[in-house]
């Protein structure tokens, strides 16, 4: 049975439909990444699953139970709320790093060793520093520590690496990988494609409160004929090129002057694109074939422009 099962979830704020009929499942001892740009509804979804927010409709089952107002789930779940923007990561501003981690540890029956966890996240030298004097990245690391110190079987991490430098990002990734290896179920949100690709067993792509694609990173990026990419002047008539390539083809101007062709064998695509450009007196630049990246998939699914 799935550890988290969400079915036709809906939640509005006034007239804003933040989550609009969303369904997915997170399997035990796996990392599930909810991927989407800002405002897609990731935080709302995670907070509903973590029991922090009520829903309007739909069913949510977490460890076999409804998470809303369910105190029996609290010892089994760890939550790292999103900190960026609101600054509401949920820590007393005047409390010291070591103090607050010890406090959260004291709520659990079999907590992790506080000193070892501080060490692992490179926070030992900050143990006596108050929360409000920490940098954004240090706050994120402590927030992650607070989510896992009670040895939960399921953790919700809302944008765990937002605002981290490269070293801290890798430290966080390695802890998430170790959590999974230890049998912890991880549900995280991110808008970073490389993060989802590297960490997740299962990716749920969300746009406008709905799931637009789901699967393993490998399945989502599987070659279907390969993608041919090229640069040229912006504004070429892609519909015309599509007609020339055949009905299976999908041609997009990914960003101004950057084109992607999918759905046809690479050889055919390369030859056609070259000929078509020549007819127009356009010189295609950086013509390349290759497996789609998760970024291509994401952009194709959620519309043009890079994710925010």
């Amino acid at each position: 049975m799935a550890t988290v099962e969400v079915c036709d979830l809906r939640r509005s704020y006034g007239s804003v439909r933040a989550v609009d009929g969303l369904s997915f499942a997170a399997q035990p001892a796996a990392v599930t990444a909810v991927l989407g740009r800002n405002g897609a509804g990731k935080t709302t979804t995670v907070e509903i699953c973590a029991g922090l927010r009520p829903r309007d409709s739909g069913s949510v089952t977490v460890l076999g139970k409804d998470p809303w107002r369910n105190p029996t789930l609290r010892p089994r779940i760890g939550v790292m709320p999103q900190a960026a923007g609101s600054g509401a990561a949920g820590v007393y501003p005047a409390a010291r790093v070591g103090e607050v981690l010890a406090l959260f540890a004291s709520f659990a029956a079999h907590p992790l060793d506080v000193g070892a966890l501080l060490d692992r996240l490179d926070l030992t030298r900050l143990a006596r520093t108050p929360w409000r004097r920490l940098s954004g990245g240090e706050q994120q690391r402590l927030s992650l520590a607070l989510a896992v110190v009670g040895r939960p079987e399921l953790v919700f991490l809302d944008e765990p690496t937002a605002g981290l430098d490269v070293a801290a990002r890798h430290a966080t990734w390695s802890l998430i990988e170790d959590l999974r290896a230890a049998g912890v179920t991880v549900l995280l949100t991110t808008h970073a494609m490389d993060e989802a690709e590297r960490l997740a067993d299962h990716v749920v792509v969300v746009a406008s409160g709905r799931v637009v694609a789901a699967g393993s990173p490998a399945a989502l990026t599987r070659e279907d004929g390969g993608t041919v990419r090229f640069s040229a002047v912006p504004g070429l008539p892609v519909a015309d090129l599509t007609t020339r390539l055949g009905t299976a083809a999908r041609v997009r101007e990914v960003s101004p002057g950057e084109y992607a062709v999918e759905g046809v064998p690479a050889q055919h695509a390369l030859a056609t694109v070259t000929a078509w450009c020549a007819e127009r007196g356009v010189l295609p630049d950086r013509l390349s074939t290759g497996r789609r990246s998760l970024e291509d998939v994401f952009l194709g699914l959620t519309g043009d422009g890079p994710p925010a």
Binding site: S106, F107, R120, R151, E153, D178, A182
Partner: peptide, 29 residues
């Protein structure tokens, strides 16, 4: 790096301990 046993071991501490530790923190603050 310190080895950490991350194996799940969920469970709440006794209610008295939770409240006492929280109250102590609030008072300290």
């Amino acid at each position: 790096m310190t080895a950490l046993d991350l194996t799940p071991a969920p469970g709440a501490a006794p209610v008295g301990r939770r409240i006492a530790r929280h109250a102590a923190m609030e008072m300290k603050l």
